[in-house]
Simulated assay, not measured.
Amino acid sequence: MTSAWVGERVRLRGVEPGDWVAFAGFDEFSDDVRNSWFLPPPRSAEAAKRWAAELAVQDPGFDEFRLVIAVKEDGAAAGMINTQNIDTRSGTFSYGIGVGRPYQGKGLAREAVVLTLRYMFAERRFQKCDITVYGSNAASLALHERLGFVVEGRKRRSHYAAGRFEDVVLLGMTIEEFDQLHGL
């Protein structure tokens, strides 16, 4: 038996209360946190525990969900992927992804994205994924290019972080493009 949520190196799973330790550790890398959205002030261990505990008891939705990217070999929490901006009328969605510094460059993000896109396209009948990546996030831009996303435009000077304005790159992938590259 195989699971749609398991790849060669990762298993996507719900958040567990103990995951707070890994995610609190990832927060120590400010550049990585900025690349995900913005840099918030530090939170206490109790606040991080409460965050993970609250996520652990939420039922994931079918279309909008947040999953831990776990290393298949040992179950370690390596990052998170979440779907968002669901538009069922047009059949579009987006996602956000973050992988902790110790796990970057190992293909875990790529595999997590493919598993998530396959679910959204093949099980939930979406027809297109639209995402945004900050212009300074060269690693994410390269990842999405390798995945087959197409650059559809730029919003110039639309994001502020680390004392500077930067572009936001708009990328997209259709179900047909995904199927051709990765298979449904």
Rank of each mutant, 00 (worst) to 15 (best):
T92Q: 08
A109G: 09
T83C: 10
G107H: 05
L171V: 03
S140W: 06
I86K: 04
T92M: 07
E111K: 02
R118A: 12
F126W: 07
G153S: 00
A139H: 09
L108P: 05
G79N: 02
R125D: 15
Y134G: 11
A139D: 09
V150F: 01
C129E: 00
S140I: 09
I97F: 12
I175H: 14
S158D: 03
V151K: 08
T83A: 06
S140G: 03
E152Q: 10
N82G: 10
A122D: 15
L108A: 06
P102K: 07
E152Y: 02
G148I: 10
M80P: 04
V99N: 09
A122N: 08
D179I: 08
I81H: 09
S140K: 01
G107K: 06
G153L: 05
S136Q: 15
A161F: 13
T116W: 04
A161R: 10
I97Q: 11
M120L: 09
K106V: 03
K155W: 05
F149P: 05
R154M: 04
M120H: 08
L143K: 06
K155R: 10
V169G: 10
F93M: 08
G153A: 01
F165R: 02
G100K: 03
K128S: 00
T88M: 09
A122T: 08
A109E: 02
T83H: 07
L147V: 05
R124C: 02
D130V: 12
E123Y: 12
I175F: 15
E177L: 05
F165H: 10
I86P: 06
N85L: 09
G107P: 04
G105L: 13
Q127D: 00
V113H: 11
V114Y: 13
G79K: 02
D87H: 06
G91S: 03
N137K: 12
R146K: 13
S136K: 15
Q104F: 06
A142L: 11
Y119G: 04
A76E: 04
I86V: 12
G98I: 15
A122I: 07
I81Q: 13
E166G: 14
G96L: 06
S94L: 11
T92C: 05
I97R: 09
I131A: 07
V99G: 07
D167G: 08
Y134L: 14
M173P: 01
D179W: 15
A142S: 11
T92D: 04
D179A: 11
E176D: 10
M173L: 03
E176V: 01
R146L: 02
V114S: 08
A78V: 02
R156F: 01
A77F: 01
R124M: 04
H159C: 09
V99S: 03
I97L: 15
S158F: 03
H144W: 00
V114W: 14
A109H: 10
G107I: 03
H144F: 04
L117V: 03
V151P: 00
H159P: 01
F165N: 04
E152K: 08
G98P: 05
R164S: 12
V99C: 07
K155S: 15
G105P: 07
L115R: 14
A112F: 02
K155E: 12
E111R: 02
V114N: 09
A139V: 08
Y119W: 13
M173F: 08
A138L: 11
I81G: 13
G148W: 14
D179R: 15
L115Q: 11
R156K: 06
